[in-house]
């Protein structure tokens, strides 16, 4: 279950990240990214998700027959 959900969570996180980057590009004063506590927490969670997904995916590839 977790294994199936992880890629979707990464997808959600990456689209959220892109949204923040676009908004921040147009209105830096809103301070959506960079030095923002909430964003930093989100970034940490997102990075961990990507890390776990990546490791899992690499292990799967190594296990699967060529």
């Amino acid at each position: 279950m977790i294994r199936r959900a992880l890629p979707h969570l990464c997808l959600v996180g990456s689209i959220m990240m892109l949204t923040f980057i676009v908004i921040d590009f147009f209105n830096r004063a809103m301070h959506f990214i960079g030095g923002n506590e909430v964003f930093n927490s989100f970034l940490l969670i997102f990075t961990l998700l990507v890390l776990i997904t990546s490791i899992w995916t690499i292990c799967d590839h190594r296990r699967s027959p060529r």
Partner: peptide, 21 residues
């Protein structure tokens, strides 16, 4: 369904972010 669920998750994530931000 998968696409819809992902979109809902994205919306929920942005709302939670906005709530804290």
């Amino acid at each position: 369904w998968v696409i819809v669920l992902d979109l809902v998750l994205i919306g929920a994530g942005l709302i939670v972010f906005a709530l804290f931000h």
